[in-house]
Amino acid sequence: MLVDGIKSRPRYNGLSVNKSSRNHVFVADGDGVNAIADLFAVHSQDIGGHVTIVFAEHNEGKAEHAAPLESISADSVHIMPSIPTAINRLAGVLHSARMGTQIYASGTEALIGLTIQLAQAYGMDPQSVITEHRGSFARRVQCVHCKGFTEDVRTNIVECAHCRTNLLVRDHYSIRHAAFQGVCVDAEVPGDLPQVIEAFK
């Protein structure tokens, strides 16, 4: 079928420490901050050198989410209001970074995907980013027709935020665009849609 069993569907293996690194850069949104807190609770003695945390508060309960950061001894913490601003700040951090820097991303697939996309722009292999998924499975979707992005998609069928095409959200994932691919679902009979269900909670 068009949707399942596609190899490009990202997998997230959970946060672990790169003990050799002397510069650790953590990026998180929402509940992803708890993945960092859990890692430090068990492995803080393995994390040597400089620690940077970039946290996107997202649009969910702010103060509550940032609280776990207080238990972590980081050298610099950047609390940003949204994913795009966090990614911007991350660019500033990576700009002067050297090899030996380990990038970690935890939280929603959108946050992880955009972190990997930026790491790649800085010449890093996407597989070198250590990731853990936390929170919702809502997807960032790229319309294959107009190339526009629709954020926070929770249903199997979604209307493109740009060209209004009804899109089937596939597992086909683009690392380069940090997005799942959405393909017109009613080309033959416009408006004739399969049942719309909440597929990505």
């Binding site: 050799s20 002397r22 030996g100 380990q102 890093m124 292999d125 070198s128």
Partner: peptide
């Protein structure tokens, strides 16, 4: 390189 934290992919 590994001891300095370089990822294996590099």
């Amino acid at each position: 390189a590994d001891h300095m934290g370089w990822p294996s992919q590099h």
